[in-house]
Design a protein around this nucleic acid. Structure first.
Length: 235
DNA sequence: GCGACAG
DNA sequence: ATCTTGTCGC
């Protein structure tokens, strides 16, 4: 498997302040498309994206790994390296992660299909997490898979793989708590762009045959860490 | 005002 | 996210 590595380019007009970032969220939020028209779970292509940082050296590395939805074999992968465009601010994670992710996706030699993000989509204080943001910017179908409940509340789902419970903001179901392996801590799924919550959960289960986290995220996580180390070594 | 807070 | 050793278990 050959991996193309490109340099991150920060899009024109990328916000610098938190106020600007919130204004961008407000402007883009209405462009989220609800519902899914993509291939059923276990078919088509599924792509994982993830980002690693060395803030001390102002270095960021992103990876995009495309898997065959049926076999979960790696079909293609790409990485992007550059400087950190935005600090970590809860609720504004998209502005820190997306420039590198967009560059990695652009470098892929094939369409990514459904994109599985690390973090949230609709389940966001302002209902526009990084998965939603990525979907609107690219037009791709996206889902968010987070490892903790962020600011939301929930009851624990049943112990069996596939069990779910609603992820709640007050009484509003903004996502779903999904048990991906028997007796293992669940993940937190929310809709990004052009997907529905039921489909998002089914898609996540389809790429989670053996571990708590999707194969897409595991592959992307490993690759972006490697890319970061590579960049550190070269300089 | 203070704490909580995806990655 | 990242800082970090050994250790228990499949």
């Amino acid at each position: 498997m050959t991996t193309v590595t490109v340099t991150v380019r920060i899009p024109d007009g990328w916000p610098v302040t938190e106020e600007e970032a919130r204004a961008v969220q407000d402007a883009l939020r209405a462009r989220v498309e609800a519902g899914g028209s993509g291939p059923p779970p276990g078919t088509g292509r599924v792509t994982g994206v993830d980002v690693a940082y060395d803030d001390g050296r102002d270095l960021v590395a992103a990876a995009a790994v495309v898997l065959d939805g049926a076999t979960l074999d790696v079909v293609a992968e790409a990485t992007a390296v550059g400087s950190v465009p935005f600090p970590y601010v809860p609720g504004l994670l998209a502005f820190r992660e997306l420039p590198a992710v967009l560059a990695a996706l652009d470098a892929l030699p094939c369409p990514p299909g459904l994109v599985v993000c690390d973090g949230y989509g609709l389940a966001h204080p302002r209902r526009f997490g990084l998965a939603s943001h990525l979907g609107v910017l690219t037009g791709l179908a996206t889902v968010g898979v987070a490892k903790n409940p962020f600011t939301f509340h929930h009851d624990d789902p049943g112990a069996a793989r596939g069990s779910t419970s609603p992820l709640l903001a007050g009484t509003e179901e903004v996502g779903r708590v999904l048990r991906t392996q028997d007796g293992v801590k669940p993940v937190f799924v929310s809709v990004g762009h052009r997907t529905g919550l039921d489909d998002a959960c089914a898609q996540v289960l389809a790429v989670t045959p053996r571990h708590r986290l999707p194969e897409t995220t595991r592959r992307a996580d490993a690759l972006c860490r490697r890319a970061l180390q590579e960049a550190l070594t070269r300089h």
